[in-house]
């Protein structure tokens, strides 16, 4: 199987996943219909799996050498993580959200077939690259939502409409997002050991990833310790996202980043 069939694969899995999301939302009215949602979801996963395995076979190597190939893996694992989160936490929108992200990644491969051959430098050609990036994308996505929830909570507080549900949602997002942030740090460290010889080099990107992680750590402990300190906790959560953004985009503009190994 090669990239020529990919547009069909894409259309098929998108349709199946889309149907799954639709059913999951509709099934809120009719719980028994939910089983159809699972079926559609797993059918979509099966299509992607068959394509990846087929491509693997035809290339005679794991498809992990080009950016297009790595996007294939994002498109495979994002829905899976979203599905898990939905099953565990009944957060249907996380499923929808992660499927949307997967479709965007896979869509780039359809619209821009040229990029399939775009080179990945040797250090990036690692089995750890994909898990590292996937868990980070997922963590960032959830933590972005937690920041919105924090702002909502602060707004609610100001207008006297504060709801405990908002707070619970924020905590939930952070616990899940923080778990994935931790996975991302550790996968990155293990990859660093294999590629660059050490698991921690105090590279500016690493430093900011650590700072991001610490701020969410602080949030968790403030919440666990003094659940009455709602306002400071929500401010911490909103601020944490600013640190996250610096880590994501801003690092390259800091004086500390001259000569960073993270060029992406």
């Amino acid at each position: 199987m090669t990239w020529t069939v990919f547009p069909t694969v894409f259309a098929l899995s998108t349709a199946l996943w889309g149907a799954a999301v639709a059913v999951v939302y509709l099934a809120r009215l009719k719980p028994r219909a939910e089983i159809l949602g699972h079926l559609f979801f797993w059918a979509g996963m099966a299509v992607m799996t068959i394509f990846i395995l087929g491509l693997w076979g035809s290339l005679d190597r794991p498809p992990m050498r080009t950016l297009g190939e790595t996007r294939l893996w994002y498109g495979f694992f994002m829905p899976l993580i979203g599905y898990l989160t939905w099953r565990r936490w009944q957060l249907a929108w996380v499923l929808a959200y992660s499927i949307l992200m997967a479709v965007v990644f896979l869509g780039i491969n359809v619209l821009n077939p040229d990029v399939h051959d775009r080179a990945l430098m040797p250090a990036l050609q690692s089995v750890w690259f994909v898990p590292h990036v996937i868990v980070y994308i997922f963590a960032y996505a959830l933590l972005a939502v937690s920041a919105i929830v924090a702002v909502k909570a602060l707004y609610e507080g100001r207008s006297g409409q504060f709801r405990l549900k908002t707070l619970t949602l924020a905590d939930n997002m952070v616990y899940i997002g923080f778990a994935f942030l931790t996975l991302g740090l550790i996968f990155g460290a293990i990859w660093g050991k294999e590629a660059w010889g050490h698991y921690w080099n105090w590279d500016p990107k690493e430093v900011w990833a650590l700072l991001t992680w610490i701020v969410y750590l602080a949030y968790i402990h403030i919440r666990a310790h003094r659940s009455d300190l709602v306002r400071p906790a929500m401010w911490t959560l909103a601020l944490a996202f600013v640190v996250l953004m610096v880590c994501w985009f801003g690092v390259n503009y800091l004086p500390s980043a001259q000569g960073s190994i993270h060029t992406y």
């Binding site: 936490w89 616990y175 778990a179 931790t182 550790i186 666990a224």
Partner: peptide, 17 residues
Amino acid sequence: MMLLGAVYLFWLGKDIG
């Protein structure tokens, strides 16, 4: 240990509180 801890955190989420 931290990987397992992270899985635990994901699975138990807010219940930990």
